[in-house]
Amino acid sequence: MKTKLFTALAIVTLSFMACDSNDDNTKVTPQPETTELKGSITSNVTLKAGEIRLTDPTIVREGATLTIPAGTKIIATTQSAYILIEKGAKILAKGTAAQPIIFTSSTAKSGSWGGLVINGKAPLSRANASDPSTFGTEINDQIQYGGSDIADNSGELDYIILEYTGANISDDKEHNGLTLNGVGNGTKISNIYIKDGADDGIEFFGGSVDVTNLLVVNSEDDMFDFTQGYSGTVKNAYGIWTAGFKTDEVDPRGIEADGNHDGKGPDHINQSNFKMQDITIINHSSQLATKDKDGNEIPLMNDFVKIRRGATATITNLLIKNAANSTFSDIIDMKDGNGAGNAATNITYTFEPESLFSSSKIKLEGAAKATKNNTSTGANTSVFAWTKYTF
Rank of each mutant, 00 (worst) to 15 (best):
K4N: 02
K4W: 12
K4R: 09
L5M: 06
L14F: 15
M17Y: 07
S21H: 14
N22W: 10
D24A: 08
D24L: 12
D24V: 11
N25K: 13
T26W: 09
P30I: 08
Q31S: 15
T35M: 13
T35P: 02
G39K: 07
G39C: 02
S40E: 11
I41S: 06
V45W: 11
V45R: 12
L47N: 10
L47M: 14
L47R: 12
K48D: 15
A49R: 14
E51L: 14
E51N: 13
I52N: 00
V60P: 00
T65A: 07
I68S: 00
G71L: 07
K73L: 07
T77Y: 06
T77M: 08
A81G: 06
E86W: 09
E86T: 03
A89S: 05
A89T: 01
A98C: 14
P100K: 09
I101V: 06
T107K: 02
L116I: 13
V117E: 05
V117F: 12
K121P: 06
S130E: 15
F135P: 00
F135M: 15
I139Y: 02
N140C: 13
Q142I: 14
I143E: 04
G146W: 04
G146C: 03
I150Y: 03
A151H: 01
N153D: 14
N153L: 09
D158T: 06
Y159V: 06
I161G: 00
E163H: 01
Y164D: 04
Y164S: 09
N168W: 08
H175C: 15
G177H: 01
L180C: 04
N181L: 14
S190E: 11
I192G: 03
D196N: 12
F205A: 00
V209L: 06
D210N: 13
N213H: 08
D221A: 12
M223Y: 02
F224T: 03
T227A: 08
Y230K: 09
G232I: 01
T233V: 12
V234N: 00
V234L: 11
K235I: 14
G239P: 00
I240Q: 01
W241G: 04
T242A: 05
F245E: 04
F245A: 03
R253P: 02
R253M: 12
G259H: 07
N260K: 13
D262C: 11
K264S: 15
P266N: 11
D267Q: 11
I269H: 07
N270I: 05
Q271K: 11
S272E: 03
N273Y: 10
N273W: 08
K275D: 00
K275L: 11
Q287T: 01
Q287H: 10
K291F: 13
K293N: 07
G295D: 10
N296E: 12
E297V: 14
I298V: 15
P299A: 13
M301A: 14
N302C: 07
N302Y: 08
D303C: 00
F304W: 04
R308N: 03
A311W: 08
A311N: 03
I315L: 13
T316I: 10
N317S: 09
N317P: 05
L318P: 04
N322L: 02
T327Y: 10
A344I: 04
Y349I: 02
E352Q: 15
P353V: 14
L356N: 13
F357D: 12
S358C: 11
S358M: 05
K363P: 00
G366P: 06
A368R: 01
A368K: 03
T371S: 13
T375I: 02
T381S: 12
A385G: 08
A385F: 07
K388T: 10
T390P: 04
